[in-house]
Amino acid sequence: MHRRKIIDRLISGWMAAGLFFVLMIPLAIGLGLVLKSLPILKILALPELLGGSIWKPLSGQFGFKPFILSSVYVTLISFLIAGPVCLLSAIYLTQYASRRLLSLMQPVIDILAGIPSVVYGVWGVLVIVPFVIRLAELREVAISGYCLLSGGIVLAVMSIPFILNILIEVIQAIPIELKEASLSVGASYWETIKWVLLRAGFSGIMAAFGLGISKALGETIAVLMVVGNVVQIPQSLFEAGYPLPALIANNYGEMMSIPLYDSALMFGALILFVIIVLFNGLARLAINHGERYR
């Protein structure tokens, strides 16, 4: 009896310690990145760092604007493609399609979501980059193909399974009686979708989009492989960009050899961390709130 109690204590202790450890991860990440960013924050003010557009680590100039804007542009392009496609497809799968198509689609979504970022990158290099070159040729522009648009398209394809999955769940969670109520007063399917389902699922749909955007913001390898990585403020879809994650990933090798460079890159990671946690947190809150509402 006594031994059983001791074992129980030990195991419970291990469990609690594990939980404590896990809960410390976000705090540790935040704190670690802040500490690492302090050296550069001491020298350059926040507005200078975020708003400056000159990036010359060797002469101590660290302006993050090109990277932040590139990130925003690539994410925006991907969202403009993935958002409507996902919403339409989620509507089709849950409202119009046969159950067989939906159950066929589920593994397709799972597989697409599971394919590693780097494989999407290979596909982007082999398929999307040549495609974008063609597209530019139509408008009589000669380009390398490694540009914002390529990055945005690859990113869109990557976010589709992720967003679609959440959207399907959101729409399926809407009580079927709402649909019945709308149909029974003589609304067509489309009217029911437009006036009732989209409204009832509004917060969930917004949350799905928010999660998709925050995932796109942090995506690294696939984008890095097709986006061009030139430090500039891109002026068109066919110009190369240099998103934040790509900046961090590309320069880890040199960052220890140039003063303040490591601090600057860790500051970049901190920006990403803060923005994504905020986005994610808000989206999750919206989803949880939606569930409670029902």
Partner: peptide, 19 residues
């Protein structure tokens, strides 16, 4: 839709539309 409009439906639990 015309047929359905000939019949009003009242379900077990009230489901007001989200408006």
């Amino acid at each position: 839709t015309r047929i359905r409009q000939k019949m009003g439906l009242l379900s077990q639990r009230p489901y007001p539309l989200p408006m």
